[in-house]
């Protein structure tokens, strides 16, 4: 288990992190979201024991990072922001070094390095100096280092930054595969990632937690949740369709996008619109190109919670 208790970090007069508390259980993948400068990286550094907290404390598997740092760090795989490594070393040597520091050795370490490098597809670059590698490979070398000792806790600061879509997919698969038995915290500013891998999302703004929910619950906060969008062929009368929609009992209001030639109907609380609208559309023979039920928009929720609380 990971526990953070009232973590605070001051940089001179600036309060970067302002009382963050949460705990994460095994099997949970926690996504850390927030605008740049919100305190994500500082919080993760305090959890990993790199930055001492100005107040509060953090615990990893029951060991406090400030008073029992070695015990805590043994149970942790940490990917710092930017995945730093020793540039003159080749990934093979680098992993060997980290493995030995972590108490692995001999054939067990060799076998583990083989497994991890196969997992992250480092095969072709195992003998090249890390500083000559592409950003994607460097990131994967960093990830390899975090999972080398098979730790119960992973803290990954932007694990997919700089990866191409295929590589992102691979890393997400990796995280999903490890999710069941580990505690994983990732920070990201890619919202789709939260949906793809996280079971829980914490949004930070101005050094405080402004939301702590499942990704579904976050999406449900969106005003688009359960709204119905219709895109019409240009032959249709957009104004007439909009008027018809507004007549429906469950519709609260509508929004028209003239450029897209589409209209979105927002439901009154608790109303379900999809069936009534599709029936109406059939009856009126609207030339519909696309009709869909909106799940909600995470970027809109993100903007809402981070801007109103920062102000």
């Amino acid at each position: 288990m990971i526990r953070a208790e009232g973590l605070v970090k001051n940089y001179g007069p600036l309060r970067a992190v302002d009382g963050i508390s949460f705990s994460v259980q095994p099997g949970e993948v926690l996504g850390f979201l927030g605008p740049n400068g919100a305190g994500k990286t500082t919080t993760m550094r305090m959890l990993a024991g790199f930055v001492p907290a100005s107040a509060g404390h953090a615990e990893i598997c029951g060991f406090r990072i400030d008073t029992q740092p070695l015990e805590a760090k043994r149970r942790l795989g940490y990917l710092p922001e930017g995945a730093p490594a020793y540039g003159e070393m080749a990934p093979g040597e680098f992993l060997h070094f980290v493995g030995r520091i972590r108490g692995l050795g001999g054939s067990a370490l060799g076998k583990r390095i083989d497994e991890v490098s196969a997992r992250l597809q480092l095969g072709p670059v195992m003998k090249q100096p890390i500083e000559t590698l592409s950003k994607g490979f460097r990131r994967r070398v960093g990830l390899a280092q975090t999972i080398l000792h098979d730790p119960p806790v992973l803290i990954l600061d932007e694990p997919t930054d700089g990866l191409d879509p295929n590589q992102k997919h691979e890393v997400r698969e990796l995280i999903n595969a490890m999710a069941a038995e580990k505690i994983i915290i990732i920070s990201t500013h890619i919202l789709e990632e939260v949906d793809a891998v996280c079971t829980r999302a914490i949004i930070i703004a101005g050094g405080r937690i402004v939301a702590d929910e499942t990704p579904e619950a976050l999406i449900h906060r969106s005003r688009y949740h359960n709204a119905v969008s219709i895109r019409l062929a240009h032959s249709a009368d957009l104004a007439a369709v909009t008027e018809d929609l507004q007549q429906l009992a469950g519709v609260d209001h509508t929004e028209v996008d003239a450029h897209e030639y589409s209209v979105t109907a927002f439901p009154k609380p608790g109303a379900a619109l999809l069936t009534v609208i599709s029936e109406l559309a059939g009856a009126r023979r609207w030339p519909i190109e696309n009709l869909r039920l909106e799940a909600g928009r995470l970027d809109e929720v993100f903007r809402n919670v981070t801007t109103q609380d920062a102000a």
Binding site: L76, Y78, P80, G82, Y86, I101, R102
Partner: peptide, 14 residues
């Protein structure tokens, strides 16, 4: 400069 200090200091070494 390279940031590797963050790696070193979060490994289990004193």
């Amino acid at each position: 400069k390279s940031g590797s200090i963050e790696l070193l200091m979060t490994l289990p070494v004193t």
